[in-house]
C-alpha cells in the first residue's frame, strides 16, 4: 500500500533564488523519509550548489522558465522514478509539513485523486492572510467558480497532493503563475476526484519582503478571464 513507503511520496519543490532558506525548508522533508525533488529554475544566487549537496533529487533549468515549468519538470522526473503520490511544496518556507499530512490522508486512502490546500477553511488560517490579498483571492474564487464550475474555497493555493493517476493526466503548458489556473482546468477536464483540506501559509518577514503580494492575485483574476477568452 502506498502509505507504507514514504519514499513513494515525492515532494516537488520548485526553487529560484531561495538560497537562504532552502536548506531549512528541505531538512524536515528529508528527515521524515520522503523523496524530495528540487527543481532549480535558473537561480543566480548560488542556491544550486547548496541543493546539489543535499540528499535530494536535484534538477536544474539552465534558464528561468517559471514555477509552472519547474513543477512540470519535477513531476515528469518523479513519475519516471516510480512516484505513487506527488506533493507540490513551496521552497520559501511558507508551507508547513504538518498541513501536508492532512492532504495526504484522503489521497492515500483512495478517496480522492487530488487534495488541494485551502487558506479559507478555518478562521485562523484566513486571518493569517493579509487583507488586500484576501480580497483579491476571494475575487479569484468567484471568477474561477463561474468559469470552471469549480467552486473552491481557495482558487490559488500552491500546496497540493496528487496521486499518480492525476499526475500522469496533468500536463502543464503554462510556465508562469498561470499554471495554478491550468491545474484546476485540467482537474475539471479529466474529471479527477478532488477535495480541499485546510492549510496555513506562514508569511514570514522574509516571504513578505519578496513582494509576492496582491498584484499577483490581481494578475490571477485577469489571467483567469484571458484564458477563458483565448482558450
Amino acid at each position: 500500500m502506498i502509505g507504507e513507503n514514504k519514499k513513494n511520496v515525492f515532494f516537488i519543490v520548485p526553487e529560484r533564488n531561495e538560497g537562504t532558506v532552502i536548506r531549512a525548508t528541505l531538512e524536515p522533508l528529508v528527515r521524515e523519509g520522503y523523496s524530495v525533488v528540487v527543481v532549480d529554475d535558473g537561480s543566480t544566487d548560488g542556491s544550486w550548489e547548496k541543493i546539489k549537496a543535499l540528499p535530494v533529487y536535484a534538477l536544474r533549468h539552465r534558464v528561468n522558465l517559471g514555477q509552472g515549468a519547474a513543477l512540470q519538470t519535477g513531476m515528469t522526473f518523479a513519475l519516471s522514478k516510480g512516484a505513487q503520490v506527488i506533493v507540490h511544496f513551496d521552497a520559501d518556507g511558507q508551507h508547513r509539513l504538518k498541513d501536508v499530512e492532512g492532504l495526504l490522508k484522503p489521497v492515500l486512502a483512495g478517496e480522492a485523486d487530488v487534495a488541494l490546500g485551502s487558506r479559507f477553511m478555518r478562521r485562523e488560517d484566513a486571518k493569517a492572510v493579509p487583507l488586500s490579498k484576501r480580497i483579491l483571492l476571494r475575487m479569484a474564487i468567484v471568477v474561477n467558480g463561474v468559469m470552471t464550475g469549480l467552486w473552491l474555497t481557495d482558487a490559488h493555493n500552491g500546496l497540493r497532493v496528487l496521486n499518480r493517476r492525476a499526475a500522469e493526466g496533468i500536463h502543464l503548458r503554462e510556465n508562469g503563475f498561470a499554471h495554478a489556473t491550468e491545474i484546476i482546468d485540467q482537474i475539471c477536464r479529466l474529471k479527477l476526484r478532488y477535495v480541499e483540506r485546510p492549510m496555513r501559509v506562514h508569511y514570514s518577514k522574509y516571504s513578505r519582503a519578496k513582494g509576492q503580494s496582491m498584484w499577483n492575485a490581481l494578475n490571477i483574476v485577469i489571467d483567469l478571464l484571458l484564458r477563458r477568452i483565448l482558450k
Binding site: 513507503n5 513513494n8 523523496s35 533529487y57 536544474r60 539552465r62 519538470t73 519516471s80 516510480g82
Partner: peptide, 22 residues
C-alpha cells in the same frame, strides 16, 4: 529544450531508484 536538458543531467547524478518500484 530546457526541460530535456534538466532531465538528462539529472540522470547522471541522483539518488538511487525508489526501492520496491514496479
Amino acid at each position: 529544450i530546457i526541460r530535456t536538458q534538466a532531465l538528462a543531467e539529472s540522470a547522471k547524478s541522483s539518488l538511487p531508484e525508489v526501492p520496491g518500484k514496479e
